[in-house]
Structure formats: structure tokens, C-alpha cells
């Protein structure tokens, strides 16, 4: 049901763009106004979200790790998985951001007869996750050919490398295939595995369908319907130079593609996709496990509240403690009526 809901939303969005662009004024709305608006929303709310996170104090080091912490000299520390220095943390963050190391440790629990519970390594999520992210990055960077003039050398290099197989004309990009395969896998994973399906929400399916829609319309435009790329570049390059112009030959499918990206940009800061910024703020990844070497002060401590030791506590309440028969470290000072209290205090217990 949640799947159909997400699919329905994406299909409705596609229809909205296709019909909307055909209406009077629709071309300007879907080609210029909404993309600008979405891009502004993307940047402003992305920053707002990160600032909001930055305002939440993280009290102490969280030594949740996947490796041996710094300990006694003869115990070998795992310097990347459980770093105690800033350099180690940088190494761990680089591995996390560029290679998704946490996901690489993903395990799968299986119940066998007996019943016996077994944990096994499960790399498929990592594999398709990383394939998806890098092919999406390549596709996005390749699109810079439509946003820059003159085109930077690295875009030409990507263009060449991605079409290296020289299949057909226009040449087939390998990342197009990898992107679609990886997103399809990530979607099927949620649909096929009952435990993953159980915890999947509309917000999990929606971005996947959105990406599939973006990929499909892009592939259709390049290989099947074939749009006039020169007039599209006039619009896209016009957008970034604040001089947009929509030629007559820019057709419906392009507006569907563009509108889905518009929606993706506007939706991004409010969704789970914000892990793009969140990964840098993961406390279990970006903090050195040095709580035994450095004294960390809780950032929200009230400076007017002084430390209160047990000795001080007993000083405050000694009378009441003695009265209630509680053991005390230091006896009450002898008083005038000392004989009266003598038998009552069970000092030994």
C-alpha cells in the first residue's frame, strides 16, 4: 500500500509536469520559476537543517566503535575504527564518506533449525549503495555539460570515460545502466525482504521512485525519444546565467524530467536524503574515543552549580542520617547531651 502510494505520487507529479507544461504559461512555470524556487529551497533549508543540528549539544564522546579502543600498551588499537586522535577521526570520516565503511560492516541475522541464530556478512546493500551513489554523482557531474560554456576539462573526461564502450549513437553511458540497476535493487530489497518491507515507509519508497522516474525520463530523452540537446542547453545554461530562454523544440518529456529534479531538490532538505549533510555530524563517527585521556565538560552544564562530593553531602545531612540510623563516615561532634545519643547510633553496621 505504501509502495503504491509513493508510486502514485511520482506518477501524479509526472502527469502534472506533462500537462502543466502544455498549458499557457506552463513552460515558464515548469522550466524557469519552479527550478529557481526549488534550488533556493534546497540551499536555504539544507543550511537551516545543518544549523539546527549544530545547535544540539553532544554531551560526551560516544565510544560506539567497531574496533579495539586505545588501551594498555600491549593491546593493539584499531586506529581507524576506534581512533583516539584527530588524525584517526579524519581517516574514519574519509572512509565513511567516500567508502561507506559502516555499511560495509552490515550483517544479516538468520534463524536456522534448532533454533540457532547465525549472523553473516551482508555486502549487497553496501555494494549497490555505493554503486548508486557514485553513478549518480557521475551522472550529475556529466550534466555540467549543459550548465557550463566553455565546458571544463573534467566534464569532457567524464563524458569520454563514461561512454568508453562506444555502444551505439549517441553512445551509451555505463553509469546510466549502473544507476538504474542499483536503484532497482534498492527498491526490490524493500519489496522482497519481509523484514525490510515491514519497516519501510512512504518516505523510503518515494525517493526511490523519484530517482527511477528521473533516470527513466533521462534515458528516454537520450536514447529513445531523442530531444534536441542544443535547445535544452540554451535553457539550462540560461538558467545558471540568469537569462533563461525556452525554445519551441523543448518538449514534454524534458519538463517531466526537469520537474522530477525540481521536486527532488525541494524535497531533499526535509527528507531522509539529508544524510548527505548528516553523515558529517554523526557523533559515533566524528568524535575521537579519548574520554580516558581528555576531560570533557558537558556543554550544557550550569556554571553556577558547583561539584558536590559525598563528603560535602554528608556534611549537609549528617544529623538527619545519624537520626535515621544510616552509617556515616564521620561521626557527629560530641555534644553536651552526648550520653543520651550514645546507645542509638549503630556505628559498626
Amino acid at each position: 500500500m505504501k509502495v503504491l502510494q509513493a508510486l502514485g505520487i511520482v506518477l501524479a507529479l509526472m502527469l502534472v509536469a506533462y500537462v502543466g507544461a502544455a498549458l499557457p504559461g506552463g513552460r515558464t512555470l515548469f522550466g524557469v520559476v519552479l527550478p529557481y524556487l526549488a534550488f533556493a529551497i534546497f540551499i536555504i533549508f539544507f543550511i537551516a537543517k545543518v544549523m539546527d543540528w549544530a545547535k544540539s549539544p553532544v554531551p560526551f564522546r560516544i565510544p560506539t566503535t567497531g574496533g579495539q579502543a586505545n588501551s594498555l600498551p600491549w593491546i593493539k588499537q584499531n586506529k581507524l575504527d576506534c581512533p583516539s586522535t584527530t588524525l584517526g577521526v579524519i581517516g574514519r570520516m574519509l572512509l565513511e564518506v567516500f567508502l561507506f565503511r559502516s555499511l560495509f560492516r552490515n550483517t544479516q541475522a538468520e534463524v536456522h533449525e534448532g533454533p540457532k541464530l547465525a549472523y553473516g556478512s551482508s555486502k549487497f546493500l553496501w555494494l549497490f549503495g555505493i554503486l548508486f551513489h557514485y553513478s549518480f554523482l557521475t551522472v550529475a557531474l556529466r550534466h555540467l555539460r549543459l550548465f557550463t560554456d566553455p565546458i571544463p576539462a573534467f566534464v569532457h573526461a567524464l563524458e569520454f570515460g563514461d561512454g568508453f564502450m562506444q555502444v551505439g549513437a549517441p553512445v551509451l553511458y555505463q553509469t546510466d545502466l549502473v544507476f538504474m540497476a542499483a536503484v532497482t535493487f534498492l527498491l526490490l530489497r524493500r519489496l522482497v525482504l519481509p523484514n525490510i518491507r515491514y519497516i519501510s515507509l512512504v518516505a523510503d519508497y518515494f525517493p526511490l521512485f523519484l530517482l527511477l522516474g528521473i533516470g527513466t525520463t533521462g534515458i528516454l530523452m537520450r536514447y529513445v525519444l531523442r530531444v534536441d540537446v542544443v535547445s535544452i542547453k540554451m535553457l539550462t545554461h540560461g538558467l545558471v546565467t540568469f537569462n533563461p530562454f525556452i525554445a519551441e523544440s523543448v518538449t514534454g518529456i524534458f519538463f517531466v524530467h526537469l520537474f522530477l529534479i525540481t521536486v527532488l531538490l525541494a524535497y531533499f532538505p526535509f527528507s531522509k536524503l539529508m544524510h548527505a549533510g548528516g553523515v558529517f555530524l554523526s557523533p559515533t563517527r566524528n568524535m575521537a574515543n579519548n574520554s580516558r585521556m581528555v576531560r570533557h565538560i558537558n556543554p550544557w552544564n550550569d556554571p553556577s552549580i558547583k561539584p558536590h562530593s559525598y563528603a560535602g553531602y554528608e556534611d549537609d545531612f549528617r544529623e538527619f542520617m545519624v537520626e535515621a540510623g544510616l552509617p556515616v563516615d564521620k561521626e557527629l561532634p560530641p555534644k553536651e547531651e552526648a550520653p543520651a545519643a550514645e546507645g542509638d547510633a549503630p556505628a559498626e553496621s
Binding site: F42, I43, F147, T148, D149, P150, M234, V240, T241
Partner: peptide, 16 residues
């Protein structure tokens, strides 16, 4: 993310 914008400002586009 604003690379195309400031790149566009820094370079001169060729003729169409």
C-alpha cells in the same frame, strides 16, 4: 552546488 553559477560569472560563454 552553485558551481555552474559562479563558473558562468567567471567565464565568457561562446556564441550560440
Amino acid at each position: 552546488v552553485t558551481f555552474p553559477i559562479w563558473y558562468g560569472l567567471a567565464t565568457t560563454a561562446g556564441p550560440l
